[in-house]
Amino acid sequence: MMLEIDVESDDEWDSSTDWSLLVRRAAESAVAESAFPQLARGSRAVELSVRLTGDEEVRALNSEWRGKDKPTNVLSFPMSEAEELASADGDGPELMLGDIVLARGVCEREAAEKAVPVETHATHLLVHGTLHLLGYDHMADDEAADMESREVRALARLGISDPYAVRD
């Protein structure tokens, strides 16, 4: 897959982590577990943009686009339709999947609650966000179960255990 990733991060995100590599691995794993694995096999360029920022920026975006005036862990803004994704094998013009935005503070707090490294939780959120860009949602129970199982399989590809498993 010719995956082009634009990662923009602000000072809140630890610069000792290779966020570009983490984003790439999460996105590739999510694509491989999606209904569109041809995106990973094809020669067509696929692009997504990731913004790693703080809670306030995410709160403003969440308020503007979802009408919820609070920060959230991840926002996804898809730019491709399912029909476009399904026919995206082989060559063709670059396919823009969309944008993902992560909030550092929320991600950090949730990681602490789950007792996992921030990088592990961020990977989960990036897989989750990428699946949203690929048309998955979790509004209905059956959709949520499908999306969750794809997340679990994508994370397992990366050596990350099931984040939904009940821990003792």
Rank of each mutant, 00 (worst) to 15 (best):
E57M: 06
E113I: 04
M79A: 15
V152N: 05
S76T: 05
S43R: 15
L97D: 00
E113A: 13
A40N: 09
H138S: 11
V166W: 08
G42Y: 06
A60L: 13
D11F: 10
D142Q: 12
A27N: 00
D10W: 05
H124M: 14
M147F: 01
A26L: 02
L102T: 01
D141W: 12
K114A: 11
P117R: 12
R104M: 02
E148V: 14
R109K: 14
G135K: 04
V46H: 07
D162S: 03
L158R: 02
E28Y: 04
L21E: 14
L75E: 07
R109I: 11
H138C: 03
E57N: 12
R153G: 04
L61A: 08
A60E: 11
D141C: 02
K114W: 05
D162F: 03
S29W: 05
T53D: 01
A82W: 15
Y164M: 02
S161R: 15
M139Q: 14
V31N: 06
L131H: 08
N62F: 03
R41C: 08
L133G: 07
P37G: 01
M139I: 15
G92D: 03
D162C: 07
L102E: 04
L125K: 03
E151R: 06
E57C: 06
E57K: 12
G67M: 03
E83F: 05
T72Q: 10
K68L: 14
G42I: 06
V127A: 07
S29Y: 02
E148D: 11
A103Y: 06
D10S: 09
A145D: 13
H138M: 02
D137W: 12
E148Q: 15
N62S: 08
S87G: 13
W65V: 13
P163C: 05
D11N: 10
R51S: 10
G129Q: 06
E57L: 10
V7K: 03
R167Y: 03
W65S: 10
A115W: 11
G92I: 06
L102H: 04
S80L: 09
P163W: 02
I100D: 05
V74T: 10
A165V: 10
P93D: 12
D137K: 15
P78K: 00
E33R: 10
P71E: 01
G54N: 12
D11V: 14
L3Y: 09
V101N: 00
R41H: 13
L97M: 01
P71Y: 02
A45C: 11
L85E: 03
A86C: 07
V46F: 05
D11L: 11
D99I: 06
A140S: 14
E81P: 02
R41I: 08
D142W: 11
